[in-house]
Nucleic acid binder design. Structure first.
Lengths: 207, 207
DNA sequence: GTGCAATTGCACAACACTGTGCAATGTACG
DNA sequence: CGTACATTGCACAGTGTTGTGCAATTGCAC
């Protein structure tokens, strides 16, 4: 068993992958889920999980790393070469949405400082790019708000949560949610709702 | 010691009060704070806390009840007899803001299903009044958003968190925060920023 | 089918936390 | 002062969790 770390047997890899996926789902349901809960849910014994991850911390950490990577990639790709800040935000949110929903766990964890130290740090670069974008928009007058750009960054983030919760509670259709979230973010940034709606329709149609 | 529950000795009452206050602060920092952490922070031994509250559940429950009561009272009082939805929201947020910390605890606990069953239920009436208000505003065209009123309720809530975090990070002055939060909520509801700012200035000046 | 890695099934030790019991100590109030 | 009550300082049982060790067993791949 000690060699489980070295080799690349397909069986072990598949298990590792499934453990990660199930762990994500389980932690989403209960952020304090125990290793035993996770293992059982993955159809595996607790001991096996420790064969793949040395500690609970490591397991969650891996999950966080994957999430951050996916988010950063989606964000960067979405607004590549887009000049207008409003459109850039729209594209970014639309692209981020499906991933953010899947990984909302890590943001929830990031808000509760306790769990894994360093989530905020790992998430910081992504946040930085959002803030830069918001600042551009404010300076160009595309956005308008009495809040400084970094504060708007938090607003941006929390807006996604708000819409996620709404979807969770069945108040919003899942297919509509991405566009709704985008409009919500834009209008929080001071873009008139009519403009925001138009923009979102246009952008999401062109995909 | 068994009579601690009956009598009204000033010392015991003061201790009970301090335990509650400290517990609030401690749970805000870490929703999973142990009885020992709370007791020590209150300058008291764990055993003493159990003299005032039969269980952790009971302690947190008391805290929740107090918070809900304070919030409901502040909210009801603030918009008593105010017809315009926008102004009502402005007054409500401005009044709620100073006790928003407690609000924060509630939501943090409500999201972790495990802690105390029934937080969402106890909080529901307050949430309901917010949603009603938002619905009125939407119907009257004062607010505009593609989101249905209940979803906007979540947005309202998360907006407060966003501004709290901004204050926490030193991005916003504490005195300005209430007004900032109000403008943020209003513009998320689709009220033009200029209008929102005016309204807030007016309302907060008249106090 | 044989072999090797992965998985399992226990059995630990260590720790942290909850809630309770009880005797000893402190302290306010008449 | 003395009484009544609050607080303390243990000690305890019960529970749940983490991480580890090791022998037995399974299952994939060649």
């Amino acid at each position: 068993m000690a060699a489980m770390t070295t080799g690349n047997t397909s069986r072990a890899d598949a298990n590792r992958r499934r453990i990660l996926d199930v762990a994500l789902a389980e932690l989403l349901r209960d952020p304090d889920a125990s290793m035993d809960q996770i293992a059982r849910a993955a159809g595996v014994v607790r001991r096996t999980v420790y064969g793949h991850f040395p500690s609970r911390e490591a397991l969650v950490g891996t999950l966080v790393d994957e999430a951050v990577a996916a988010l950063a990639e989606a964000d960067a790709g979405a607004r590549d070469g887009v000049a207008d800040p409003a459109e850039a935000v729209a594209r970014s949110v639309l692209a981020l949405w499906p991933i953010a929903d899947r990984y909302r766990l890590l943001i929830a964890l990031a808000q509760r400082t306790v769990t894994v130290q360093g989530i905020r740090e790992r998430l910081a670069p992504l946040r930085e790019t959002q803030v830069r974008l918001l600042r551009d928009g404010l300076e160009q007058g595309v956005f308008s708000s009495p809040l400084p750009a970094p504060a708007l960054g938090f607003v941006h983030e929390q807006m996604l949560f708000a819409v996620m919760e709404a979807v969770n509670d069945g108040l919003l259709a899942a297919e509509e949610a991405g566009r709704s979230a985008t409009v919500a973010v834009l209008s929080a940034a001071g873009v008139p709702v009519t403009l925001a709606t138009e923009l979102v329709a246009e952008v999401s149609a062109r995909t």
